[in-house]
Nucleic acid binder design. Sequence first.
DNA 1: GTATGATTCAAACACACGTTTGAATTGAGC
DNA 2: GCTCAATTCAAACGTGTGTTTGAATCATAC
Lengths: 232, 232
Amino acid sequence: MTPGPSRSPAPETRDRILDAAEGLFVEHGFEATSMRMITSSAGANIAAVNYHFGTKDALIQEVFGRRLTELNRQRLAALDRLQAEAKGEPLKPSRIVEAFFGTALELAADTEHGGHTFMRLLGRTYTEPNAFVRKFMAEEYAEVLERFLGALYSALPDVPREEILWRFHFMMGAMSYAIAGTDSLQLFAGSFDDADPQRLMPRLMSFLLGGLRAPLAEFAQGAVQGGDREAA
Amino acid sequence: MTPGPSRSPAPETRDRILDAAEGLFVEHGFEATSMRMITSSAGANIAAVNYHFGTKDALIQEVFGRRLTELNRQRLAALDRLQAEAKGEPLKPSRIVEAFFGTALELAADTEHGGHTFMRLLGRTYTEPNAFVRKFMAEEYAEVLERFLGALYSALPDVPREEILWRFHFMMGAMSYAIAGTDSLQLFAGSFDDADPQRLMPRLMSFLLGGLRAPLAEFAQGAVQGGDREAA
DNA sequence: GTATGATTCAAACACACGTTTGAATTGAGC
DNA sequence: GCTCAATTCAAACGTGTGTTTGAATCATAC
């Protein structure tokens, strides 16, 4: 039962289901997207999803897996390239940030092959409550985060590691919202005519680097008066 | 049917349901939280929620309404105070940002009366797919965003309004993730021992102001080379 | 052409969902 | 003590969920 494709090259039903699921997950969320919505949108039978993937959770995992693995592979490749070019010299923090977030933004700018759709989904999923999804994401990110945080630690030896960690967290939030929140929540009513992903890249990069370079906060209570140490 | 409380002062069942719902929504999300989970957690009968609120959507709306209205009232009061003190002088952008985000961070630092729980929920909800929730949030935020963005436009007359809009968007993302993502996604494995909300405030503020002040990006394609104009 | 494995299909499974019902219980005002 | 409205309760409503079944169809190899 649930034999799985043994040696056939590319049955297209499987991919149609993945594409349909990806789009519907973005639009309605995981829980609110039913298997019947997915299969009918993909023009497949309801039983097809269990035949090809087993369970709904496994389908979710596969929706992420096929894109996230590749994204993180590219991120690591970009970091490898940087470190190879540097030949032992310390890396510029801005280049590290570009390798991580720029790679993601390039995927988000791809509106033709579903990259944009996926990045919207990914952005929302960082705060997804579903335990299964969380666990999967953590595993998928473990190596990448270790490598990039390590690179930043080396590039900024004078900045406390905890500060770097927090700022990386802040940066991920800014990027995720920039991508996921633009067209989903119309809080900023009618104002994002210029949601062109091509233009998002330089805008966001400038903001991220500004935040990374901000003076380190002192732990005075109340209003923040930034110190004069520069973080980056 | 569904008479609603007409003139009684404070039946406690209603509040127990709201508190239980708030906590469960944070933990599992809206869709994955059932009425039975809520009422059993609140020690109430399953029918109580429909008696007091009518529908699940109305309950969700009330969970947000009771806290978000107050938060935004405080934000506007803080801006009023700033503008009164300035007596016509232009406001410092950093003060405007503090009025908006600092007020929210203070609520997030309140772990005793559920403020922290609520802010985690709020952060995730900015990207919530549910159409009903989105519409409600947009209405609830309309006035506050108009006032604060207007204040920033006046404080930064030389910066294109679209840039200010984007940076505000980025800032909201950084804050939301900082609050919502800390304990939900353990991407940064085991590293956030120091998740003390009191310390989050100065850290995040420094980052946000750094991003706001970052040089404006030029729209060169490819890697970002920030211009030399300062945004704030 | 027939055998074999992969895939599709209509139908049903048991279960959980949000909501409703109508009777019981409570509590204050007279 | 009685009245009457507010509230609680057990039970059921109809519907949609993820998943499973077993037969039908398809495609390939011999």
